[in-house]
Design a protein around this nucleic acid. Structure first.
Length: 647
RNA sequence: GCGCCCGUAGCUCAGUCGGAUAGAGCAUCGGAUUUCUAAUCCGAGGGUCGCAGGUUCGAAUCCUGCCGGGCGUGCCA
């Protein structure tokens, strides 16, 4: 049990006599932000004073006198308007260490288990994964690990898009453009090429159709701007409309550039151009192939059966590099047979009605409908999502569902979850665990120089390659062999990418920056990994037997400020993890680990370990090192990051 | 038009059920090393928390208005 939990337990009976909402009052006991106020502070006296009619400081004093803290805290002060400042007795802290040293879970207790499905990553198969899939995969995987560690019964589910329009495109491509030998050698690469080819031709024609429109709009827009400039409107209003028009203008120019580049990609190559012209109706025909697949056409179904395993293999390849795996991979195709029944059920329940030929669900206070069947009879992802919810609850027995999905889909999830509640799943706890966009230096969504989305696999490879350079640079004496170096590069590279993502508040957009994520200093994975490597360096150099050390461990001695500060941090590991699980925020774990590594580095500077002459102090420090290493290693592993023993 | 989100140090960001003098990293400047790995440590400077009101003992945090930016918005997922 952490010190914070212990303090809260001591306060609970006293606060129960003062308020109905003890939990709320207890949540106001927290670690002090400044050590001069002690280790912990209770801020509950001020708000409680209001209802009880006693002066806050006086109430704080009364609470202090009633709470049984004798063996726990050394001094208790009432300060300011009614803060209660607590400082732990060092001998109490030293006692705690015993329990943690012998506990594999490092003193982190388990919560009451809930059956949770966490839905993340969810790429479309047959298209290469890109940087947009990074956040969902990394955040989702971290939360999965944390939730499981704190004791929940977790199922991770990769809800892949394996039944969508991309298969029509691949089928069309396969029928017309396949390179047989390339397909035999590397089916996935060939399928990806076919997908890209078909979408390029399709985009080419679409761009051709749209170009005149966009050009016309730009012209109109230009005229509007000129007119507005010379108009006699209220100047404030004028500036505002002008600004809006200009930003629209910029948007249009960007669209125009995009369309022109799609045209150029084809026109610049005479053969390609000819091919495109020969397949001018490609978009419609590809859609037709999709429709045939969905309506049970045998040939298309056979092709789908042939392609899908290859696509899954390609995904696995990336997931292996990323260190991510799933309990289930139940994609759109899995739910496809259930969709008709879902719509029928929704209609019967009186939730879904027909509107403009589509079957829609309207939510109160929302204009946009939730469309579960399009006017052409096809189902949508909304239908699939509802079928998924029903399956997860009825078949898997799920109590909690988390969706780790881009924040731009908030509207969809709002409607989905509202519908689910009205459909009879009101008892289920749903949360859209939303996240922001990965941006480039230009603050636009992260793209390559040529404007393409960044492939996830190449991104990971580049991270490892860059990390390898850093490893070599930092090991001029070549004390590490090449295999070790590669292992470190992998841990540092992949870890760097993951950490950069996880240490931001997940709801914020963030700017992708190579130098920062692989930097040796600062709030990075490397810094934390390095702290751990140094600890293991001590063990290696001192030839320390860890099992023996733990077995005949004496008391931890926390005499030096940096020893005490480090252990105080270590014993709050469980507090950090429960915060992550409660808020679904991995950055609360990265923050904990950074702070831990930081305090270790200070301790390392201040307190010699192997060189310490006093045996008791020496072994106490070794034990502290061991606890730190175990905490860092476990903490990093919950982020999905490796912790090399040497680097 | 409507809806949602954001605006914190030169830069990148924490700060989420209101709490003490608003924090970190980078960058800048200064200091520490015959090292238990300097991929380190210690210190300094740097802020009208977009603006203006309001609620409160107390506001970066809650409410209102304004300014600036992003995203979404009926048959794509």
């Amino acid at each position: 049990m952490s010190a914070l939990q212990e303090i809260r337990n001591r306060f609970a009976p006293v606060l129960a006599g003062l308020t109905d909402d003890v939990e709320l009052a207890l949540s106001m006991i927290r670690a002090s932000q400044d050590s001069k106020f002690g280790d912990f502070q209770a801020n509950c006296a001020m708000p409680l004073a209001k209802s009880s009619g006693v002066a806050p400081r006086e109430l704080a004093q009364q609470i202090v006198e009633l709470v049984q803290l004798d063996n726990l805290c050394e001094k208790v002060e009432v300060a300011g308007p009614g803060f209660i400042n607590l400082r732990l007795r060092t001998d109490w802290l030293e006692q705690q260490a015993r329990a943690i040293v012998s506990d594999e879970r490092l003193g982190v207790s388990r919560v009451e288990a809930k059956k949770i499905v966490i839905d993340y990553s969810s790429p479309n198969v047959a298209k290469p994964m890109h940087v947009g899939h990074l956040r969902s995969s990394v955040i989702g995987n971290c939360l999965e690990r944390v939730l499981r560690f704190v004791g929940h019964d977790v199922i991770s589910d990769n809800h892949i898009g394996d039944w969508g329009t991309q298969f029509g495109m691949i089928i069309y491509g396969y029928r017309h453009f396949v390179d047989e030998s390339a397909y035999r050698d590397e089916p996935v690469a060939e399928l990806a090429r076919l997908y890209r080819l078909v979408s390029q031709i399709s985009d080419y024609h679409e761009a051709g159709r749209k170009l005149p429109d966009v050009e016309e709009q730009i012209e109109k827009n230009g005229v509007l701007i000129t007119q507005l400039k010379s108009s006699e409107d209220d100047p404030k209003k004028k500036t505002k409309s002008l600004k809006k028009l200009r930003s629209e203008h910029e948007g249009l120019l960007e669209t125009l550039a995009g369309l022109q580049s799609k045209r150029r990609a084809v026109d610049s190559d005479a053969d390609f151009q000819k091919l495109a012209i020969d397949h001018s109706d490609i978009a419609r025909l590809a859609r037709l192939e999709t429709a045939k697949l969905h309506s049970g056409d045998e040939e298309n179904r056979a092709l789908w059966d042939e392609f899908l395993p290859e696509c899954l293999k390609a995904l696995d390849h990336v997931y292996r590099k990323l260190g991510v795996s799933f309990d289930k991979t139940l994609g759109e195709s899995f739910y496809q047979p259930m969709l008709a029944d879902v719509v029928a059920d929704l209609k019967e329940a009186g939730l879904a009605i027909e509107s403009d030929g589509a079957v829609c669900i309207f939510a109160e206070g929302n204009d946009a409908p939730f469309i579960v069947q399009k006017s052409d009879g096809a189902y949508t992802y909304a239908t699939t999502d509802l079928a998924t919810i029903r399956y997860r609850v009825k078949v898997l027995g799920t109590q909690v569902m988390y969706y780790v999905v881009d924040t731009r889909q908030s509207e969809h999830f709002k409607l989905l979850l509202d519908t689910a509640r009205r459909w009879g799943f009101g008892e289920i706890e749903f949360q859209h665990v939303n996240f922001g966009t990965v941006l480039g230096d230009d603050r636009r969504p992260f793209k390559t120089r040529s404007g393409d989305t960044v492939g996830l696999e190449s991104l990971l490879d580049e991270a490892v390659a860059r990390a390898h350079e850093v490893v070599v640079e930092n090991d001029p004496a070549a004390t590490l062999d090449e295999e070790t170096r590669r292992g470190v590069a992998e841990a540092v590279g992949i870890g760097g990418i993951k950490y950069a993502d996880l240490h931001h508040n997940r709801e914020s957009d963030y700017v992708f920056n190579w130098d920062k994520m692989l930097a040796k200093n600062g709030d990075t994975a490397t810094y934390i990994q390095y702290a751990n490597a140094r600890i293991n360096g001590i063990f290696r150099k001192g030839e320390i037997e860890l099992d023996a050390l733990r077995a005949d461990a004496g008391l931890l001695r926390l005499e030096h400020d940096s020893e005490r500060g480090l252990f105080l941090q270590l014993q709050s590991f469980g507090d950090a993890l429960s915060a992550v699980g409660r808020e679904m925020r991995p950055n609360m774990l990265t923050q904990f680990l950074f702070e831990t590594a930081n305090r270790f580095s200070t301790f390392y500077q201040d307190c010699p370990v192997l060189k310490e002459a006093d045996d008791a102090i020496r072994s106490s420090r070794l034990l502290l090192c061991d606890l730190t290493s175990r905490t860092l290693t476990l903490g990093l592993s919950l982020l999905g990051i490796d912790a090399p023993k040497q680097m």
